[in-house]
Write a protein that binds this DNA or RNA. Structure first.
Length: 432
DNA sequence: TCTGGGGTCCTAGGACCC
DNA sequence: TCTGGGGTCCTAGGACCC
């Protein structure tokens, strides 16, 4: 059996833990740069605020109905997530727990009776008491059915946040009441196609033959079909080492100057290299992409991207940043106004066994020194604060008025940011 | 004026091998 | 006139997830 534990409106709930006056009120959390709505309280959903809507489009509604706005505060959310996940890990042991995202985890048990309704209710209460996070739980013999169960747990108060699909009668009833668009693995594109064929509920889908589903919706659709039938065929949602690491940002304004783009891209590349080192990985592919503003059709449009293969896989600051610069120079077109850029490193493997190349232009000793220097930078930055030491090319010019040098994180808009209550001593909650 | 970020998997098509 | 069959690997693009 699988149990999925899903935090309710995760980011909004994190904000509410430290600002209890937000409870019972419409609240939304925005994406980076305060662009789009990425989390909504139930009260905000009830006002018709849709996921992903640009905030400026709903400002009149926000003002009229007193909707509370928060910028995203990932430091806070990640810390709250870790607290919930550690409770779940204790619950079933590391081996039976798979963290699927910042707000969800699958627990598994060999026995069909391990996850009872009483067990679920007790766990919901424990997590609420220990962390303040409201969660819902769905239990079923497959992950897709467990996801369906959480939908019912969230939408029907009678379940007390815990829903089990653990026998044939319940399975049929659940599928008949579940819209096809709510099925895990069916996106907006799939919904259109399913409806075209007269499939409106999960149940409708299961009534078609396997061959028909395979021919129209490929193996992905077939897998969903099997999972809905109760056949467990997604063996794991975790793949071990990540295959790609990406750092990308939209700019507050637009950037057309190559030098300025270089500054951003080298920061993104540096960030990727740091993530690689943190995971004891190396990468052999460095991709850079730059994009103009897709919403501004009056301006010249250009999406550029290219990839460079490294002779020897690396994670040191110097080679990753240098590779990214080279790629940027290859794809840059002058006269375009860029809105977004990013760096993706791929071909990731363990740093414990790096394949040497016969024709490498650098000696192993030179590589060791670059790795060692990157480690020293990490140590200093960990102790003294991020970006204490960085490459010259990453540096933004000093602001003439304040005399301060900003970094690329400062350039994001976050007008409505709450404090880092759990991770910064200066931000501790004050109780009067 | 203003429109997120970080991932995975699958498929089709091309280049290549014998 | 007529042009096979069976593979692998890589890449780009699309769909999906949160």
């Amino acid at each position: 059996m699988y149990a999925i534990i899903d935090c309710d409106n995760c980011f909004v709930s994190c904000e509410r833990v430290f600002q209890p006056d937000l409870k019972g009120r419409p609240v939304v959390v925005l994406s980076n740069n305060d662009g789009c709505v990425v989390a909504r309280s139930n009260e905000a959903k009830a006002l018709g605020i849709k996921m992903g809507v640009p905030i400026y489009q709903i400002m009149p509604l926000v003002k009229e109905r007193g909707v509370e706005i928060r910028s995203s505060n990932y430091t806070l959310y990640a810390d709250m997530s870790n607290r919930v996940m550690s409770i779940l890990r204790d619950e079933v042991g590391q081996a039976q727990m798979e963290q699927y995202s910042i707000d969800e985890a699958f627990l598994s048990a060999p026995s069909a009776t391990a996850f009872t309704h009483d067990w679920g209710v007790a766990l919901v209460r424990k997590i609420g008491k220990w962390t303040g996070m409201p969660v819902s739980i769905g239990v079923a013999p497959t992950r897709t059915l467990a996801k369906a169960a959480t939908w019912f747990a969230k939408h029907y108060a009678g379940y007390h946040k815990v829903c089990l699909i653990d026998d044939e009668t319940k399975r049929q009833l659940a599928l008949q009441h579940l819209d096809i668009g709510e099925v895990w693995g069916v996106g907006w594109r799939g919904v259109e196609q399913y409806r075209y064929y007269g499939i409106n509920t999960a149940w409708d889908l299961t009534q078609r033959s396997a061959a028909w589903v395979r021919s129209k919706f490929t193996v992905t659709g077939l897998r969903t079909w099997q999972e809905l039938q109760g056949e467990d065929c997604i063996d794991t949602v975790l793949t071990g080492r990540r295959q790609t690491i990406c750092t990308s940002r939209s700019f507050d304004g637009m950037v057309s100057d190559l030098g300025q783009l270089e500054m951003y891209v080298s920061n993104f590349a540096s960030h990727c290299a740091q993530k690689l080192r943190r995971e004891h990985s190396v990468a052999s592919l460095v991709t850079v992409f730059i994009q103009t503003n897709h919403h501004r059709l009056d301006l010249r449009q250009y999406d550029g991207s290219a990839t460079l293969s490294l002779i020897t896989a690396a994670s040191n600051e110097f080679e990753i940043v240098n590779a990214a610069r080279q790629v940027l120079h290859r794809i840059y077109r002058s006269g375009c106004q860029y809105k977004r850029a990013g760096v993706i490193v791929g071909g990731i493997s363990s740093n414990a066994a790096v394949q040497q190349d016969l024709f490498d232009t650098l000696s192993p000793e030179q590589r060791r020194r670059m790795d060692r220097l990157s480690e020293v930078m990490d140590t200093v930055n960990r102790r003294m604060g991020a970006d204490t030491i960085q490459l010259g090319i990453q540096q933004f010019p000093v602001d003439k008025e304040t005399g301060k040098r900003s970094n690329f994180k400062d350039l994001l808009r976050h007008q409505y940011r709450s404090k880092c209550y759990t991770s910064n001593l200066d931000d501790l909650l004050e109780v009067q």
